[in-house]
Design a protein around this nucleic acid. Structure first.
Length: 692
DNA sequence: CTGACGATGATACAGACG
DNA sequence: CGTCTGTATCATCGTCAG
């Protein structure tokens, strides 16, 4: 369990360095991270126990791997670089069912072979930090002298245990059972199970109020407490107290998200006066770090032959294995796990094209209810889709280019658990070529512009000056322009999706033309106080209706009486429009959208189309916490479909400044999709939340 | 609102190599 | 002839300063 504590140590290390003049302030987080994790795990004292420690140390796979042959387990660990002899011994001691414990023990044995050195200076060092000499000597003996980080961590742990012993002996803390599934995966958003935290942080205090606020926003109290500690009190021993208390209640999955050493700086910078915004940013950063960790190549998973749900629960465990193996293998097989884009990009199939796939096996954990549908740009930075897929129950993304549905390309990836047989397209078919879409342009279209499809419709359009420049360049030449000019003009036309509207005259698309291409009703975004620029922006960020409707079409038979829809990042209501055009009645729609103009557009469409259902709009995705969702679900009996296309600002190649992947400020909202989907699943299935 | 601002990753293709 | 590698070409739900 203690391997999860690698990051507090780094914080201490940094503090110590600062205090003592800082000889190594600029160490490399990435490599240190690996070292810290392994070193710490290696030297974690086996005799140490906490009230919840047993639960954490317990099998990550209890009961699920019992029928695996002994040799398979041994082979697995041998493959990680341990000697067969050692593995066999440990498996005999610990039992083959408890893979986590085996790994722990193996790492401990490995540590016992570390070289020793003179220790008096070391002891002085830690005594100088304020620990008692007795404790330091004991810990150094336990850990060996070669591993100062482990020593420090153990010291902190012991200190924490001493100061929290009375609290932890509380017999009412039912969550501290030794059953892994029962305690570790418990619902840590359950307020009642956090009496200890409340004792430490009185709700009447400022910290308490912030904590309550954060938990009301949908974060687990445990998560909020961590952040409060890190940002608010910044008192190390006290921090460890809280941390230890929480460990028994947090999934490893969760622990992984907050252990990232890169997050220290954030804590230190924020200081004691953190605002709620800073704290939520911090939690989000933790969630991002979780994603970053998930980017590590995933090797064969001999223990995950059960459901993917279980796989997801054990990511913390997987992470350790991965990092360990990574060091052994020097990550040469990076591409093995990468998501590859299909060519042609038709996903499981598009209308009027061969190679339709009508059958697929979804991971058990991905099955509904509810159905979910997540969308984002296909050409995201490397590893992003792997991460998205893993966070969404390992469902394989479906990559589709909307050029197979309309006259404009739109390469998008969709992760969903919808059935894929008996899909049908919206009729009549929309225009499929530029000429069909804009017949009036044919007259002016030069023969050397061979485009039949427009490129991806973006949020910006070409400037008037550019079209003028093109006109002048063409007017300089009689008849067929020279190849150089042709090349320049074509390049600009492709880049900005220009169409020919007169002799030598190109122009960007009008907003209503973009609406038509994307499958929206004409003037969908018009009026209501929205500017032209905003129309382009909203449309550029939207679904292509025909593409999405094709995927949604399978729902028509399943929900003849109508559908309850949760639409996250709904924008101008692409999902709602698609369902409506399919003839699927909208019963209750909860739309979450940050931009007021977009909410107005959706509301306006809702009224214009005489919808009989109810539309609830919510501004901020953070408002949608467990309480709110529970209330909504109680009101109309659950969601049938959860749709979301989270912002792609940080993923798209057009962004030259902040193409930060899922770590980006906006793209990280993907994790809110996961959070909410998970909450919906948990509430609807009557179980407690696993991930907040 | 305008006009400035590259980078990343996918794809296609030619040529080397066995 | 298939595979690998280097090169060229292309597309991209955008951001920032003024």
């Amino acid at each position: 369990m203690l391997r999860s504590f690698s990051w507090p140590i780094l914080q201490v290390k940094k503090m110590v360095d600062n205090n003592s003049g800082g000889e190594a302030d600029n160490f490399d987080w990435d490599t240190e991270d690996d070292l810290e994790i392994d070193n710490y795990a290696i030297s974690a004292p086996s005799g140490l126990s906490t009230p919840c420690g047993e639960a954490v140390l317990g099998s990550a796979e209890a009961g699920s791997s019992g029928n695996s042959p002994n040799s398979k387990i041994i082979d697995h660990f041998v493959g990680m670089g341990f000697s067969r002899e050692m593995v066999a011994k440990v498996v005999e001691e610990k039992g083959e069912e408890n893979s986590d414990l085996i790994l722990e023990a193996l790492l401990e044995y490995s540590a016992s072979t570390l070289p020793s050195s003179s220790n008096s200076k070391l002891i002085d060092h830690f005594v100088g930090m304020g620990f008692s000499e007795e404790m330091v000597v004991k810990v150094v003996q336990e850990n060996g002298e070669g591993n100062t980080d482990s020593i420090l961590e153990t010291l902190l742990t012991y200190s924490a245990l001493e100061t929290t012993a009375s609290v932890q002996q509380n017999p009412d803390s039912g969550n501290c059972s030794s059953d892994y599934e029962g305690s570790l995966l418990n619902d840590f958003s359950d307020f009642d199970s956090f009496s200890e935290s409340e004792e430490i942080m009185s709700p009447s205090s400022e910290e308490g109020r912030k904590l309550l606020h954060l938990t009301k926003m949908g974060y687990s109290e445990a998560e909020a407490s961590v952040v409060m500690e890190r940002c608010g009190l910044c008192y190390l021993i006290h921090f460890c107290n809280i941390f230890l208390l929480m460990v028994g209640r947090m999934s490893k999955f969760h622990l992984d998200s907050i252990k990232d050493p890169r997050l220290f700086n954030c804590c230190i910078e924020n200081g004691p006066d953190s605002t709620i915004e800073e704290l939520t940013d911090f939690i989000r950063a933790a969630q991002i770090a979780k994603a970053a960790d998930a980017l590590f190549p995933l090797e064969d998973k001999p223990f995950s032959n059960g459901s993917s749900h279980k796989k997801r629960r054990n990511w913390g465990y997987d992470l350790l294995l991965r990092k360990k193996k990574l060091k052994l293998e020097k990550r040469f097989d990076e591409d093995d796990d990468a998501v590859h884009l299909p060519n042609p990009m038709i996903g499981f199939g598009v209308p009027n094209e061969p190679d339709q796939i009508t059958n697929r096996v979804l991971p058990e954990a991905a099955l509904g209810p509810p159905y979910f549908y997540y969308e984002n740009v296909a050409l995201a930075p490397k590893g992003v889709w792997t991460t998205i897929s893993r966070f969404l129950y390992d469902v394989e993304p479906e990559f589709v280019d909307s050029k197979f549905f309309c006259a404009a390309a739109r390469k998008r990836g969709y992760v969903h658990n919808l059935p894929i047989d008996n899909r049908f397209p919206l009729l009549p078919f929309p225009p499929r070529t530029i000429h069909e879409a804009f017949p009036l342009t044919r007259k002016w279209w030069p023969s050397w512009d061979t485009r039949t499809k427009l490129n991806c419709l973006q949020t910006c359009i070409a400037s008037a000056r550019l079209t003028d420049k093109i006109r002048k360049a063409l007017e300089d030449s009689d008849g067929e322009p020279p190849l150089g000019i042709q090349k320049f003009v074509l390049e600009q036309c492709r880049k900005w999706n220009l169409v020919w509207v007169g002799r030598n005259k190109v122009a960007p698309l009008e907003p209503d033309e973009v609406e038509m291409l994307l499958g929206f009703p004409r003037n969908h975004t018009r009026g209501g106080g929205i500017s032209r620029t905003d129309r382009y922006k909203s449309l550029g960020n939207s679904f292509q209706i025909d593409t999405v409707a094709y995927h949604f079409s399978v729902l028509k038979d399943k929900f003849p009486g109508g559908i309850n829809l949760l639409s996250l990042f709904s924008g101008i209501g692409g999902a709602e429009v698609a369902l409506h055009q399919l003839g699927i009645p909208l019963k209750n729609v909860v739309a979450v959208e940050i931009a007021e103009v977009n909410r107005n557009i959706l509301r306006s469409w809702w009224e214009q189309t005489n919808q009989r259902g109810t539309l609830t709009d919510i501004q901020d995705v953070q408002e949608l916490n467990g309480d709110r969702l529970e209330q909504l679900i109680k009101n109309f009996g659950g969601f049938d479909l959860v749709v979301g296309g989270s912002p792609c600002n940080n993923l798209t190649g057009s962004n030259r400044y902040h193409r930060d992947g899922l770590e980006g400020k906006d793209s990280a909202l993907f994790f809110d999709f996961c959070r909410i989907l998970d909450l919906v699943k948990c509430i609807m299935n009557g179980t407690k939340s696993m991930i907040v």
